[in-house]
Computed example of a mutant assay.
Amino acid sequence: MTMHQQMKFSGGVIHRLLMRELHHEGPTYEMQFLLGNHSVRFYKVEFYLITGLRFGVVLDVTRYEAVENGRRERYFGGIDEVSFEELRVFLTRGEFKEMYNVVKLYLIYMLNWILIGVDERFKIPVWQFRLVEDLDAFP
């Protein structure tokens, strides 16, 4: 078994690395992080190859229109404040009308659990439900 086959994705490691990003005046194609007492630099393409996280124009998803009969409306009655815990419990029950819906809801779950690192009381912003309706824009 090669080393690449033995490696596993660790969202916690990526989250901790992103929390240590340094904002700098250097080239825009470069990212800097403070690890211990050392400043570490990656080209964005290297960071992408390691993490799989894409770079590009940040979309203003707060202006996305609500999708008629979208995931929030179908599964949570259209309420504005769905907690992370409510989403987790719903996904655990496995009561889905279409399997494609579970993929979109899990994307919201993974965004908050792995990349953002929220606790169970966190209220999922409405724009995240709107964002998963456009998977090309999803991070």
Rank of each mutant, 00 (worst) to 15 (best):
M1I: 10
M1C: 04
M1W: 10
M3I: 12
M3G: 04
H4T: 15
H4W: 14
Q6W: 14
K8N: 09
F9V: 10
I14F: 07
H15M: 15
R16M: 07
L18T: 08
L18S: 04
M19N: 12
R20F: 05
R20M: 13
E21P: 09
E21Q: 15
L22Y: 07
L22A: 05
H23M: 14
H23T: 13
H24W: 11
E25I: 06
E25T: 03
T28P: 15
T28N: 10
E30W: 09
E30Q: 15
Q32M: 14
F33G: 01
F33R: 08
F33H: 09
G36S: 11
G36I: 11
G36A: 03
N37I: 12
H38G: 14
H38C: 07
S39R: 13
V40L: 15
V40W: 09
R41F: 08
R41P: 06
R41E: 07
Y43R: 13
K44W: 10
V45L: 09
V45T: 15
E46G: 09
E46Q: 15
F47I: 15
F47K: 00
Y48M: 12
L49I: 06
T51Q: 01
L53W: 12
L53T: 01
L53Q: 10
R54A: 08
F55I: 13
F55Y: 09
V58P: 06
L59W: 14
L59I: 12
L59A: 08
D60H: 04
D60W: 01
T62W: 00
E65W: 14
A66Y: 04
V67S: 03
V67M: 04
N69L: 02
N69W: 13
G70L: 05
R72F: 03
R72Y: 07
R74K: 13
Y75A: 01
G77Q: 10
G77K: 09
G78K: 10
G78N: 12
D80E: 12
E81G: 02
V82Q: 03
V82D: 02
S83G: 04
F84A: 10
E85S: 06
E85V: 04
E85F: 02
L87K: 10
L87G: 00
L87M: 07
R88G: 06
R88A: 09
V89M: 08
L91C: 05
R93K: 08
E95W: 02
F96D: 01
M99F: 05
M99G: 08
V103T: 11
V103N: 00
K104T: 11
Y106Q: 13
L107I: 02
L107W: 08
I108N: 01
L111Q: 04
W113P: 01
G117H: 10
G117W: 02
V118W: 02
V118N: 02
V118M: 01
D119F: 02
E120N: 11
E120P: 06
R121D: 10
F122A: 13
K123D: 02
I124M: 03
I124G: 05
P125A: 08
V126M: 08
W127E: 14
Q128M: 14
Q128C: 05
F129I: 00
F129Q: 01
F129R: 04
F129A: 02
R130V: 06
L131A: 09
E133W: 03
E133C: 07
E133L: 01
E133D: 10
D134Q: 05
L135C: 00
L135S: 00
L135E: 00
D136G: 05
D136H: 03
A137T: 05
A137S: 09
A137C: 11
F138T: 07
F138S: 01
P139C: 07
